[in-house]
C-alpha cells in the first residue's frame, strides 16, 4: 500500500473535486456545496507523511481553484496550512476513534474556507461576509465532519485490499517440539 498510497491519494482528490464540480444535488437541496478535500486532508495528515500532505494540497487546491473564480493557488495554501497543523499535532489525536475523526473533519472543513476567505480579503474581489455565508460555512463544516469517518473507512478498506496481511501468530512451532522417544 505504501507505494500505491500517493496514487490513491491523487485518485481520491480527483474524485473529491469531480464530486464538487459536477454534483449539484447538495447545492439545490441545502443551498451549499460540500467539500470533501478537507476530510481527505485529515486522513492524509493523521496517517501519512509531509510530502503526501503537500501533494494533496497542491493537486487538490489547484484543481479546485481551476474550476473556481478563486485566485490560482489560494486553496493550496489553505489546505497545506490545515494539513500541516493537523500533522504537527497528530500524536495528540486518537485518530482511530470515530468522534475524533468527526471533530478533526469539522475543524478542517471549517478552517480551509475560512483561510481562503481571509486570504481573499487582500485581493481585488473580497468576499462579503453575510449571515448566509456564515450559515453555509457552518453547514459545510458539519457535513465535512460527518464525511471524514467514511474517508477513513474507505482507506482502511483499500489498505486491506492492497497490503500484505500479517500472518496470525501461532505458538505452535513444529521444529521446536520436544520429540519424546525412548532413550
Amino acid at each position: 500500500m505504501n507505494r500505491l498510497e500517493p496514487i490513491f491519494t491523487l485518485i481520491a482528490a480527483w474524485l473529491a473535486v469531480a464530486f464538487e464540480i459536477s454534483f449539484p444535488g447538495f447545492r439545490q437541496l441545502l443551498g451549499f456545496q460540500i467539500s470533501l478535500l478537507p476530510a481527505l486532508m485529515v486522513y492524509v495528515a493523521l496517517s501519512s507523511s509531509v510530502p503526501r500532505i503537500l501533494q494533496l494540497a497542491l493537486f487538490g487546491g489547484v484543481a479546485i481553484d481551476a474550476f473556481s473564480a478563486n485566485p490560482l493557488g489560494i486553496s493550496s495554501l489553505a489546505l497545506a496550512a490545515t494539513g500541516m497543523l493537523l500533522h504537527h499535532n497528530r500524536d495528540l489525536v486518537l485518530r482511530d476513534q470515530a468522534y475524533a475523526q468527526v471533530a478533526m473533519g469539522l475543524l478542517a472543513t471549517a478552517l480551509v474556507p475560512a483561510l481562503v476567505v481571509l486570504a481573499l480579503t487582500n485581493t481585488q474581489h473580497p468576499v462579503g461576509l453575510t449571515w448566509r455565508l456564515v450559515g453555509q460555512w457552518l453547514g459545510a463544516a458539519l457535513a465535512g465532519g460527518i464525511c471524514t469517518p467514511f474517508v477513513f473507512r474507505w482507506f482502511a478498506l483499500l489498505n486491506r485490499w492492497f497490503s500484505y496481511q500479517a500472518l496470525p501468530e501461532s505458538h505452535f512451532r513444529d521444529t521446536r517440539q520436544i520429540k519424546r522417544t525412548r532413550i
Binding site: I21, S22, P24, Q33, S68, A69, N70, P113
Partner: peptide, 14 residues
C-alpha cells in the same frame, strides 16, 4: 453546463 464553481461564495459555471 459541465461544471460548477465548488466555492460557495462565487457563482460561475463551465
Amino acid at each position: 453546463v459541465i461544471a460548477r464553481d465548488p466555492a460557495n461564495w462565487w457563482r460561475t459555471v463551465f
